[in-house]
């Protein structure tokens, strides 16, 4: 246990020392929230967004930035780098297991996502009239399942990519896709219907987040798809993952 505590402590320090990752993951969504939130028109409710304001409609997409960055960008590249450089193999020769390092990385990912979600909810509520999640349980479930699905995909990338470069070659396009379908590049109301629909079923499930945040319970099908993706990708990743 002491060994795991040390690993978690050191890995957290290493994560924070790499300033770029925490800045993009946590600070960028907040900054975008502030930039859009400070424009009065963005705070006015609009029938285009189902009588929400643009900022209410867009905040779940900001959370997608954190989710995508953490799960399909940072996590797989860190793990692939550790494997490529023999960090995991070296740990395997000590009484500590490389699994402890994997667990520490997952905890850091979860903490990052949780911190970012709380900050977006609190700042959105206090400064820009974004309501607290209207359906808290549904929101928690949508966030948990969306996170699980994306993390599983990130682990799958880490499992199949032999090197850091290979991990990035897979992770970057995947990251872009997640952002695109999450309505980050182009707000979803500007996208054709079928793309919006696809986006509801691709991780992390931005529609379920939006529904639970600003309206009512998310659709069970949206949640179920995330659960299925999490289990499938997670199982395959666990089967394929190698320490060396």
């Amino acid at each position: 246990m002491r060994a795991f505590g040390q690993i978690l402590k050191i890995e957290t320090r290493l994560y924070l020392r790499d300033l770029a990752a925490p800045l993009i993951t946590i600070a960028l969504p907040l900054l975008l929230l502030a930039v859009f939130g400070l424009i009065p028109a963005m705070r006015a409710s609009n029938p285009d967004f189902g009588d929400r304001s643009f900022i209410q409609y867009f905040t779940p997409s900001l959370l997608v930035i954190t989710l995508a960055m953490t799960a399909v960008n940072v996590l797989p590249t860190v793990l692939a780098t550790y494997r490529e450089r023999g960090v995991l193999r070296r740990l395997a020769t000590t009484p500590a297991s490389p699994a402890a390092l994997l667990a520490a990385q997952l905890i850091i990912s979860l903490a990052t996502i949780l911190i970012s979600a709380v900050l977006l909810i609190v700042v959105g509520r206090l400064a820009f009239d974004v309501p607290l999640p209207r359906h808290p349980l549904g929101f928690a479930l949508a966030l948990a399942l969306g996170t699980a699905a994306l993390l599983a995909l990130g682990l799958l990338v880490a499992a199949v990519a032999p090197t850091n470069k290979a991990a990035q070659a897979i992770a970057v396009p995947l990251f872009m896709l997640v952002l695109f379908f999450g309505g980050v590049y182009v707000p979803r109301f500007l996208l054709p219907d079928f793309l919006v629909r696809i986006g509801s079923y691709t991780p992390p499930g931005v529609q379920a987040l939006l529904d639970a945040w600003t309206a009512d319970a998310p659709q069970p099908l949206h949640l179920a798809i995330m659960a299925v993706i999490a289990v499938l990708a997670g199982t395959v990743a666990a089967k394929l993952f190698r320490w060396e």
Binding site: I10, L14, R17, D18, T81, Y82, R85, G86, V87, R89, R90, T93
Partner: peptide, 10 residues
């Protein structure tokens, strides 16, 4: 181990 490295910032 041969060619085993550590994280850059450690």
């Amino acid at each position: 181990l041969q060619e085993s490295q550590l994280p850059d910032r450690l």
